[in-house]
Simulated scan of single mutants.
Amino acid sequence: MTDLVRAQAPVVMGVLNVTPDSFSDGGRYADLDAAVAHGVRLHDEGAHLVDVGGESTRPGADRVDPRTEASRVLPVIRELAAAGVPVSIDTTRAPVAEAAVVAGAAVVNDVSGGLADPDMARVVRDAGCPWVLMHWRGHSRGMRELAGYTDVVTDVRAELARRVDDALAAGVAADRLVIDPGLGFAKTAAHNWELSARLPELLDLGLPLLFGASRKSYLGHLLATPDGTPRDTDGRAAATIATSVLAVAAGAWGVRVHDVRGTTDALAVWSATGRPRLATSGNDPAPTGRTEGGT
């Protein structure tokens, strides 16, 4: 999978939540057959990776026990891997990640960046697989209270740099690391927009960057009705595609999305027009004064 980390084409990671309570698609793919069929569909639509998660990380979500998480994801990963679908495991737990790699997962996508389970670095090092390190400050139940920053981009960059340093010190190879700014995780809507506008400052860390804005609540608030009612998750596809293309144009290595086909179509247009790059300054104000974050 080193070649995937070094890929020149934007990498599209398709979301497959096998949970009853994820913010967008909770319960839709709890059945094994439905989950596998959807994973195959995402791959057929152009996903380079299908990201399988068994624990919701939406703001306020309760944790599930490790056995429940493993029982949700491992059968799906085995079936998808057997069908030739490249899979990543979305987990913060080292034992779940280790079992998922044995089952066929090729990438570990850790929203805690290694903070939730110190043994994760060993698992990734021994497996030799890519590791997505997301910016994170705490579990879902209390993350809203952790959204305090002096300058969100400077602070996120510094905290991600520490996660990278710790991973390298644990023996994880530099060419296995991907960073993720963690939109919605201990972030307000204004924080999400600021991170989006100033991605090049995070890219200065010199690592591939995964961008995950798909269907998140700050997009719903941006698209709210005149009376302030946020756009529902199914109505955020176009906004998600726009954020994804802008992120890739700013230099992001990949995007994590629910709507794979629309994203791959838009990226095909971007590629056909010469892969234009976006110059960003970060000087413009956020497009909304709302402060809701979330995933």
Rank of each mutant, 00 (worst) to 15 (best):
T2K: 13
T2L: 03
D3W: 08
L4P: 13
R6F: 02
R6E: 07
V12L: 04
V15W: 11
N17S: 10
N17C: 10
V18T: 13
V18D: 15
T19M: 12
P20D: 15
D21T: 01
S24G: 01
D25N: 12
D25C: 04
A35I: 07
V36P: 14
A37Q: 14
A37I: 00
H38G: 03
V40D: 07
H43R: 11
D44N: 05
D44R: 13
G46H: 06
V50T: 06
G54R: 03
G54C: 04
E55W: 04
T57L: 08
P59G: 06
R63Y: 00
P66W: 05
P66Q: 15
P66I: 13
T68E: 15
V73R: 02
V76S: 07
E79H: 12
L80S: 09
A81C: 12
S88Y: 00
S88H: 07
T91Q: 06
A94C: 06
A94S: 12
A94E: 04
P95V: 04
V96E: 11
E98N: 00
E98C: 01
A99I: 00
A100Q: 10
V102P: 00
G104S: 09
A105S: 14
A106I: 05
V107E: 04
V107S: 10
N109A: 13
D110A: 11
G113I: 14
L115E: 05
D117R: 07
D117H: 04
P118Q: 03
D119M: 05
M120Y: 01
R122N: 08
R125C: 05
D126S: 11
V132H: 03
H135D: 09
W136L: 14
H139D: 06
S140A: 15
G142R: 11
R144T: 15
Y149N: 14
Y149S: 12
T150D: 15
V152I: 10
V153F: 10
T154N: 02
D155Q: 01
R157E: 08
A158E: 12
A158I: 02
G171F: 08
D175N: 09
I179C: 02
I179K: 00
D180V: 14
G182P: 11
L183W: 14
F185W: 10
F185A: 05
A190I: 13
H191L: 10
N192T: 11
A197L: 09
R198Y: 11
P200H: 06
E201A: 15
G206L: 03
A213W: 08
S214K: 15
S217K: 08
H221L: 13
L222H: 09
L223M: 12
G228V: 07
R231L: 15
D232T: 13
T233A: 15
D234R: 14
R236T: 09
A237Q: 10
A238N: 03
T240D: 00
I241N: 02
T243G: 06
S244G: 09
V245S: 04
V245F: 14
L246S: 06
A247K: 02
A250P: 12
W253N: 05
R256N: 03
V257K: 13
V260T: 09
R261C: 01
D265L: 08
D265T: 13
A266M: 10
L267Q: 09
A268P: 11
W270P: 12
W270I: 03
T273N: 02
G274N: 10
R275H: 07
R275N: 06
P276M: 09
P276S: 10
R277V: 15
A279P: 00
T280R: 08
T280C: 15
N283H: 12
P285G: 14
G289H: 01
